[in-house]
Amino acid sequence: MDQTDQMNQSDRTCPGRAYLHGSAGRPSKFCYGKMVFSQPRGDAVTTRHRSKLAEALESCRPVPSAKPNILKTLLAVQSALGHVPTSAIPQIAQVLGVTDAQVAGVLSYYSDLRTQPPGRHLIRVCMGESCTANHGGLVLRAIQEHVRVAVGDRTPGGRFTVEQMSCAGNCAVSPTVMIDEDLCGRVTPSDVQSLLEPYT
């Protein structure tokens, strides 16, 4: 398990609002709601993302007289980077001409904006009513047992992140599992292994 995964594991246990002091040289961080703020984990992350971030921000820079759109900008950043690093908040705020708090507020509000990089493949299991009625819960359990990870976490090695979703709008062919942008319907627990195989 690499350090990033360890951090993900401990993030999950964060209470609503608490300060956590990392052990053994891990940076200290605090979390608010679902969002975890942490110090940048060294330059490796920021260097890799810097040019993509700048590019994404440039495309969202408001023209004079236009109002800045924080959500649109964060979606563009996420689309370019795969997530929105909290270390990028000041830069985003500066480009948009808004406060850091306004950016952080929008970032923490929307559940599809993520501050941690997801695994190479994102598995989202629908927990909508139709999927639940058709035993989607058993599918979720089978997936968790297969990839051995808790909901919201990334597998060691970073192959998968497993999440729940409220409704995929695929209710007539439920239960539904969404892997990246592929939607699979009528999934049973015994389908799980073959379903995940192509995603390496």
């Binding site: 109002k67 800045p68 759109n69 924080i70 959500l71 649109k72 900008t73 964060l74 979606l75 306004q102 507020g105 929008v106 509000y109 929307y110 559940s111 599809d112 904006l113 409220s166």
Partner: peptide, 25 residues
């Protein structure tokens, strides 16, 4: 076309408009 980011309450019209302007819904 503008994309949301996973908030159920943004289906309520005033929250939707807040979100359309880029704020918390």
């Amino acid at each position: 076309v503008v994309t949301g980011a996973g908030s159920y309450v943004c289906g309520e019209e005033t929250a939707l408009l807040e979100s359309l302007e880029g704020r918390r819904g």
